[in-house]
Amino acid sequence: MSKEEKKVNRRDFLFTASYTVGAVGVGAVIWPMIDQMNPDKAQQALATTEVDISNIEPGKSITVLWRGKPVFLKRRTQDEIAEARAVKLDDLPDPQKDEDRVKEGKEEWLVMLGVCTHLGCVPLKDKGDFNGWFCPCHGSHYDVSGRIRKGPAPTNMEIPKFEFVDNNTIKIG
């Protein structure tokens, strides 16, 4: 090769510029094709649900659908709250205080996604070794605060964003 050919010349610049513009163009087309699969406006519009909780007796729970997922609303008895708070944090795979999972002053209300954090099944209530929930799919046990105690699930059941609109209504989302 001669010396002139090794130098960056006009043609190299044109190649680089063409590839760059081409890559940006391809990226600009690919991104919409990927992003179209994300939740659309109609899905996002379902982001809040209001629930009437006036008919739930202590110790009972209801399940409502929010964004296609079940949400457990459990009105816990004083015994259950005491049981949840007596647990030592060292015994928990995903340490979290019961106080951090409920709203202050409304400790009897446990509102959480009824979705096992392992692979997304709906756990069964009042089952398992810890008086809470038990997931039939792969055997995860949750306690009365919805915290993982035993089994393959990595984390506690998720607490969604929610607020008390008034004493009888909870808004999830």
Partner: peptide, 17 residues
């Protein structure tokens, strides 16, 4: 997973795709 579902759970968009 949300991207695969096209929703916040397995739902109609998931079935469609």
């Amino acid at each position: 997973t949300t991207w695969l579902w096209g929703a916040y759970s397995v739902d109609n968009p998931t079935l469609n795709r």
